[in-house]
Design a protein around this nucleic acid. Structure first.
Lengths: 332, 332
DNA sequence: TTGTAAGCGTTATCAA
DNA sequence: TTGATAACGCTTACAA
């Protein structure tokens, strides 16, 4: 019960291995007669080409890697789903790798994917201190998703964090909020920086000077801890993402504050769950699925050197008004 | 800037390629002197063996696949994390694949992983109608996780769904619940069947005959829809998993029922979020992380034909009592 | 202990 | 249009 090879097919069909290869790959004209004979013996013997041998010879693998910081965060896995959808159609194989928020692990994965001659990479970085990512760019096509490395010129797909945050703050100011705290995520992260920029610009425009910015991580636990430690409770607590908002709300309620009556809390992402959270979360929707889909598309076109319409994509976000932010009246 | 091969190292170090190979793999004795020379030139030229060539020659890939039904469900991704942890230590590469609840997609992935000579597979099936999984067992080591295929004799790691559910029902009966509805997940799924068995056995023991069982899917949406359609509201609504419970609670509240005052609702899994849900969820904790870790361990030992302590593992669950179930008094 | 050479299963080049 | 042959980069008999 040995594995069937191209030679078996050749022998059985009475042709040379090269002819079989040509039929499989449509890489050169083969007479109709031989083609049919080859095709039918392939079917008869149930032959499948060995992808490893193909890769060794061809130098590519029909494989895309996707490195994400946290497989358990729905935000990332929903992006993956979008990429998956596109690549499935293109018959590419997607390998999902979890760096677990560790730059070191991320470097290890990057290394492995390069050695294995992955054709391209979709990349959501764990921070901005990855040392080998720049050198990787020469060896592999990479598209950055959600988080951009300012240091390296490379295609990216992100959402408009700046504008998303700005619109949110505009809304909060319009509804009477006068003092703010921003519980932000990882300081070095692109998205955290962009959101901060939006936050600060908006406040400046509205001439609001009563605010504070704190950095933590994009997790429930971090949101909880930061909100626990807050000295002064402002009108609105703006969180780096939805998970942090969940954490902050729980912490505030433990401290005896009612959300949104005593303090408004907002998120960023609009995870599917945020609609069902109690109280339901006022937040900014990011187009996860589309982000993954677009990034995969760009990467695919890059790999196959098709002209790309646009390799730097900024997708728009949408303000989602729900219950955790409530108009503040004559307070203070 | 060509890629460095084993031949380059051999030439530079003044030895044969086989010697270099021997040094890399420790596959045969090499004199101390040559060994050092080889090692230092490897370092000097920054050489890494080509894993594809190695795989072609050796017939294995140091790669494990993990097929899961839904990458966005934390339950599955937490299991993956456990497996990841173990395999990282063993220097194995883990490929996560998402079947998206589709048996067809699952078959496609299985096929691909086999062709690519993945050394082993961790498998959480999307249903029980996969046609090629049995034949795959000859070609690849497979460990079933969370869901067993009764049809095929293969190692598995599951949690004790039966006992977990039975204990839950015992608790509900003890706290005065007298009528039940079970909103279960996919009918053909191992875990759904086991939980149902526990449910029915417990009720029988307590001589309770007022109950109903409905099947849906293990998703929020399904829980919501099933609860919406319920004719009679019982004392307790037992859900197939936590996500379904979230959906059911929302549906019930939309219908004007208070949880747990009017009706108790329970989940199964104890997702990290269930503690923070409002009201916090009474549920059954499954040891996700451990499930993944144990499964990876068994698979690894199987691949390297080390004696396995035990290849069929049933991990215990734990009843987690929180707010969504409330003692029912003299009702009805 | 070391080197030579064959082979893993393909595909690309060249000649016919 | 087809076939023989070399090569992709490595490991492993086998010979020395």
């Amino acid at each position: 019960m040995r594995k069937i090879t191209i030679r078996d097919i050749a022998r059985e069909a009475g042709v040379s291995p090269s002819t079989v290869s040509r039929v499989i790959n449509n890489s050169a004209p083969v007479s109709k007669e031989l083609k049919e004979r080859v095709l039918s013996t392939i079917k008869k013997l149930g032959y499948n080409p060995n992808p490893i041998a193909q890769s060794l010879r061809k130098g590519f693998t029909n494989t895309i890697g996707f490195i994400i910081p946290d497989i358990t965060n729905p935000f990332f896995s929903l992006i993956v789903k979008g990429a998956e959808e596109y690549l499935k159609r293109k018959k590419m194989f997607l390998i999902v790798c979890n760096s677990n928020h560790s730059v070191k692990e991320e470097e290890r994965l990057l290394q492995t994917l390069m050695e294995r001659k992955t054709d391209g990479l979709l990349f959501i970085g764990a921070g901005n201190r990855n040392k080998i990512i720049s050198t990787s760019l020469d060896k592999m096509k990479i598209v950055f998703v959600d988080r951009v490395y300012e240091k390296c010129k490379a295609p990216y797909v992100v959402s408009n964090n700046y504008k998303g945050m700005k619109n949110l703050i505009d809304y909060l100011v319009d509804t009477g909020h006068k003092s703010f705290v921003f519980l932000n995520g990882e300081k070095n992260t692109y998205s955290a920086k962009e959101r901060l920029r939006g936050f600060l610009d908006a406040l400046k425009e509205h001439k609001i000077e009563e605010y504070e910015v704190v950095f933590g991580q994009f997790t429930y636990e971090s949101g909880f801890a930061l909100a626990k430690g807050l000295k002064k409770i402002p009108d609105a607590i703006v969180c780096g993402n939805d998970l942090m908002a969940y954490g902050a709300i729980d912490a505030l309620e433990e401290r005896g504050y009612k959300v949104p009556d005593d303090v408004s809390v907002t998120g960023f992402d609009d995870l599917p769950f945020s609609k069902h959270y109690k109280p339901s979360l006022t937040t900014v929707r990011q187009p996860f699925y589309e982000m993954g889909y677009e990034a995969a598309k760009i990467l695919y076109r890059l790999i196959n050197s098709k002209p790309n319409i646009e390799t730097n994509v900024v997708l728009e976000t949408k303000l989602v008004i729900r219950e955790t932010a409530k108009p503040k009246g004559g307070r203070r």
